[in-house]
């Protein structure tokens, strides 16, 4: 296998080791990205649903506020999915029409 990449001279890591480090790096970037996306979704959901459901903050969350919050959370995620579906559909449609950009 290593002959495919040429013999490793001194100082250059052997291919399997480098491949491992490359995979580790890529996975770190992927999970960082996924985490940032999830955090953004959480923050937005929190902000939008607080605005919608907790209109007059009292000493604790009421039962109806909690019901509203949990429905709101589901709806916000659904809205996120609808928006991403339409956006991606639009983008790919425009790519097809103008393949140059």
């Amino acid at each position: 296998m290593s002959s495919l990449f040429g013999s490793s001279s001194s100082g250059v890591p052997s291919p399997p080791d480098m491949a491992t480090r490359k995979e580790a790096l890529m996975n770190a970037v992927r999970s960082e990205n996924a985490l940032a996306n999830a955090q953004e979704l959480m923050n937005k959901t929190n902000e939008k649903c607080y605005a919608k459901c907790v209109t007059k903050p009292s000493t604790s969350l009421s039962g109806s506020e909690e019901t509203c919050l949990s429905r709101c959370m589901d709806r916000y995620m659904e809205a996120f999915n609808i928006v991403s579906r339409s956006y991606i559909a639009r983008i790919s449609r425009e790519r097809l029409e103008r393949p140059s950009d």
């Binding site: 459901c53 589901d74 809205a79």
Partner: peptide, 23 residues
Amino acid sequence: HSTIHMMTGMCWDKCVTGTPSTR
């Protein structure tokens, strides 16, 4: 993703005016 987050927030404010229901 950040564009989709921005648009979700904007469209949520525009389209979802009542109290969120089960669907």
